[in-house]
């Protein structure tokens, strides 16, 4: 059986909120290392990969591998019934028909309990090759969100160019063009504002802004976001969570003109 207790319901609320517009029905794969989710969007352009390590829960118990097939719309409805600060416990039997969610308020004695019916989801699992990326940019997640939002007003695509000069986000649209240039930057007092660029070779890739704007819904999960790029491979956008847990998005590049 599975029993996983989260100190704050907020974490799961934010994760589900960040991915629910990209993917609808997903398997939450539970085993003794934690709860993982991998799902591709319908157009096969973006992939969500979530890992909530067992250390992110206290306690965490999962004796056998269990796949919980959940509709994220249904999960959202139920998670809305939880206060952000509620303690959340996920429970399921070994061959479950439902997943049980218990929300406990630390301040009052209120305990609420919900069951969500599970679905049989036959999902293709993708092998993601270990990649030594040519460029890794770590930057404030709010800054990345702003760049994506600003440029999406002008164009459908953004080119991300990384060189010794820094990183440049460029777009061209019907009304004109825009570009934002960032350099490495260290703020001793506010390290969450740091921009770190780790480059082994110059990179230039083009991506759909619609998807990037969507990924940025995860900005509330982490102050910083990591962008990993290599020429001609999908972009990795990573929001690191506590205890080595993470929410990652992969986005296939655009090619040619």
């Amino acid at each position: 059986m599975l029993e996983a207790r989260l100190e704050q319901a907020n974490l799961l609320k934010k994760v589900v909120d960040a991915i629910k517009d990209l993917v609808q029905d997903c398997n939450f794969d539970c085993n003794d290392s934690g709860i993982a989710l991998q799902a591709m969007d319908n157009s096969h352009v973006a992939l969500v990969s979530m890992m909530l390590k067992s250390e992110s829960f206290s306690p965490f118990r999962c004796d056998r591998n269990i796949a919980l097939g959940i509709n994220l719309g249904s999960l959202t409805k139920v998670l809305r019934c939880a206060q952000n600060e509620d303690i959340l416990t996920l429970k399921a039997e070994d061959a479950p028909d439902v997943v049980n969610l218990v929300f406990e308020s630390a301040e009052t004695d209120r305990i609420s309990e919900y069951d969500i019916k599970l679905m049989d989801i036959d999902q293709e699992h993708l092998g993601i090759p270990e990649t030594e990326y040519a460029a890794t940019i770590t930057m404030p997640s709010a800054e990345f969100q702003r760049i994506c939002r600003d440029l999406s007003a002008l164009s459908e695509s953004v080119s991300i160019e990384c060189s010794k000069e820094g990183v440049k986000f460029n777009c061209q649209g019907d009304i004109g063009s825009g570009s934002i240039h960032l350099r490495s930057h260290t703020n001793v007092d506010k390290p969450e504002l740091n921009v770190e660029i780790d480059l082994t070779e110059p990179v230039s890739l083009t991506f759909s802004l619609k998807y990037l704007v969507n990924f940025c819904k995860a900005s509330g999960l982490s102050n910083q976001v990591k962008l990993c790029l290599s020429n001609e491979v999908p972009l990795l956008v990573e929001y690191a969570l506590s205890n080595n847990s993470y929410l990652r998005f992969y986005l296939a590049p655009k090619i040619g003109d």
């Binding site: 096969h44 699992h125 092998g127 491979v233 296939a252 655009k254 090619i255 003109d257």
Partner: peptide
């Protein structure tokens, strides 16, 4: 307009 690649071209099903 640049063409959108499919993720399946990079990641294989397992």
């Amino acid at each position: 307009t640049p063409l959108q690649n499919d993720l399946g071209e990079f990641f294989t099903a397992i």
